[in-house]
Nucleic acid binder design. Structure first.
Lengths: 139, 139
DNA sequence: ATAATTGTATTAATACATTGATACAATTTG
DNA sequence: CAAATTGTATCAATGTATTAATACAATTAT
């Protein structure tokens, strides 16, 4: 399996968190699809020259979040199930993230109008990407 | 001065970070306006039953970000200046935050359409709030 | 069956972040 | 000018997070 991932031991960000982010991005970007198998804990540990526990921790937390499924003896896969949280909870989570954007935007002196323009631009790019993913070219 | 702030020592989130968030929210929400003086390091430390250094750290980091201005012997105030970062950098920062929203939204199985609906609702509420702040009723 | 491969659990070493105690420095107030 | 008030700096104590070493358990492959 091709290896999307790369860790920086001196970035300040814990390596297991770096990996989590990269997996989430790979799934959201279509590079990893539901059902896909991830590298084994040991294989990836060797490739990234890090302790297997570091990989396991990232996998574990993403399983807890419902994004991955780990099966002992078989491997770890991108989940094909619905997320664990109820729709309302998921909306609450997104609203909270959006609030952070609004507050940060205000403190950066970005007007609501400019912010909305940026939003529309990013969302459009995102939708375009989703279309391409559906056609099959993941990343 | 009325005290907007409250800290939870056992929340897992460091208290100086809790305070930073609350100050940023208070500024963005209009409860604190440019030029307003914040409680002194000691005064707030007593009110929140925490070490003065904890308050000072939050103030310091927000000053480094350009949100506050501290003057020895005088006090700490909400900045009236423009932010330190260039416009392009500020836009980059917001785009990065928006990207996080998009990725998280995808992994939560929220459609782009639904996400946009939530965005428009939140933005509308935010604009409404900004209008009220301009009229003077901060918080 | 046995070996190999996978994820899991336990424990420990280490570094770092957080908070506090205390003293210092600049400005304002009387 | 002296006292009070403000932010700043330094140092130490402590807890916690991160990573690693190692052994265990389940499944698959031979």
């Amino acid at each position: 399996m091709k290896n999307f991932f790369h860790l920086n031991a001196r970035s300040g960000v814990p390596m297991y968190l770096q990996l989590k982010e990269q997996i989430k991005t790979a799934v959201a970007g279509g590079a990893l699809r539901p059902g896909d198998q991830l590298p084994s804990v040991r294989e990836l540990a060797v490739a990234l020259t890090v302790n297997p526990n570091t990989i396991a921790r990232a996998y574990n937390e993403l399983e807890r979040d419902g994004l991955l499924i780990a099966e002992q003896g078989r491997g770890t896969f991108v989940s094909e199930k619905e997320p664990l949280l109820k729709e309302e909870e998921r909306h609450t989570q997104i609203k909270s993230l959006i609030n952070k954007v609004l507050i940060e935007s205000y403190n950066l002196r970005i007007t609501a109008e400019k912010l909305n323009a940026i939003w529309e631009e990013r969302l459009k790019a995102w939708k375009e990407r989703l279309r391409n993913v559906q056609k099959g070219d993941g990343e």
